[in-house]
Nucleic acid binder design. Structure first.
Lengths: 201, 201
DNA sequence: TCTATTATTGATCGATCATTCAATATATAA
DNA sequence: TTATATATTGAATGATCGATCAATAATAGA
């Protein structure tokens, strides 16, 4: 009974992620958004409400995809710690000059830092995403401890936050455009930290 | 032979740091800058050139002050590693809700992430400041190694970058507004990383 | 006091900001 | 085909952006 939308919502969101991840909320104008999504203002506002709504959906989409990628990566390993170490090295390795991603730093962290004093709603969204990641990391580490991968004395919540902070630091360092080898070394050094929490030394 | 300036340059820069550190480059409008500095546009432009010039000077001022504070902190300790560990704990402890600083995250890192795809000049400035910090950390660690504080096999450049990444991650986590105890634990856990590089293990 | 020099002011500039909406196009149901 | 419903368009909105500059104020030397 009606005309069908020319634009696929998910495709549009992916393009929005590409722009917002690179330039941030304040750094992306509606003009640039129109260009990136190949949509006219009316369509954008009809579909996503406003710039805030589009950013919110883009950030959620980014987080979901990131979560899926991390889960897929960890699924390749029997050992949780092996998986997390490999994940750190993988992140370090993907921070190369020719990586085509819009930015090396995490979009969630970029949003948290950009919005904390300018756009409370977005900062809170970033915060709750990070809390959810922290929580699922804690679960994962608790499983690892139960399985005997980690020393029984390990505080898995603390280790989860330490790991999360490593990712933040690693990816922020990625924005410095260091050499691939330097980034790889940093990933290795961060991975080595986890060895200290394994059982048996 | 001429009228004297009503505004002290350093005082104005401190106020600019307060605003830019909190809200970032794109998040701070000239209107807000006028208010923060209690200066009218003409005076601001006559003194600092333009918004970019003011931000550049503010960032440099922030970095110098940060460098002085870190040096003062380290000077309290005979051991370099002790000093760096204490510095990590100090940062963690200052990320409390009642800390009156404009932001918990580092302004240099905030600038790097915000400007990397929107304002190349500012990103390059942030980059070179971080490179300078990395370099002086490397020097410091090399001294520590010579003094027998660190294992002879330690790669001090790598350790300097690992330490820098810890600070980035720690202060980014500070923006999450976790409890003081949680932040303190994170600082402790990061400090513990350095123990692994000491001589004797 | 007068003159030269610099600082400050604040109205104003064109550009760009996010957003709106009447007009138009396209699809489905009848 | 016709009527209905939804999607798209793009010019236009008022607000705010960073920046300018002529007018005014204040200080110094003569």
């Amino acid at each position: 009974m009606a005309r069908q939308a020319r634009y696929d919502r998910k495709t549009a969101l992916d393009k929005a992620v590409g722009l917002f991840w690179a330039k941030g909320y304040h750094g992306s104008s509606m003009k640039q958004i129109e260009q990136a999504l190949d949509m006219r203002p009316g369509s954008i506002y009809a579909t996503f409400g406003n710039k805030d709504g589009l950013f919110t959906e883009a950030l959620a989409s980014y987080a979901e995809q990131g979560g899926r990628e991390m889960a897929a990566h960890l699924a390749q390993y029997d050992s949780v710690i092996d998986g997390l170490q490999s994940y750190l090295r993988h992140i370090a390795g993907s921070c190369t000059p020719e990586s085509q991603s819009p930015s090396q730093a995490c979009m969630i962290v970029k949003t948290l830092l950009e919005a904390s004093n300018t756009h409370t709603m977005l900062a809170e969204q970033a915060n709750s995403i990070l809390a959810a990641i922290e929580h699922s990391l804690t679960d994962l580490l608790n499983q690892a401890r139960s399985r005997g991968e980690l020393a029984p004395t390990v505080d898995c919540e603390r280790l989860a936050r330490l790991f999360q902070a490593q990712i933040m630091g690693l990816r922020a360092m990625g924005e410095r455009h260091l050499t691939p080898q330097t980034m790889q070394h940093l990933g290795d050094d961060m991975a080595a930290i986890l060895d200290g929490y394994r059982i048996h030394h």
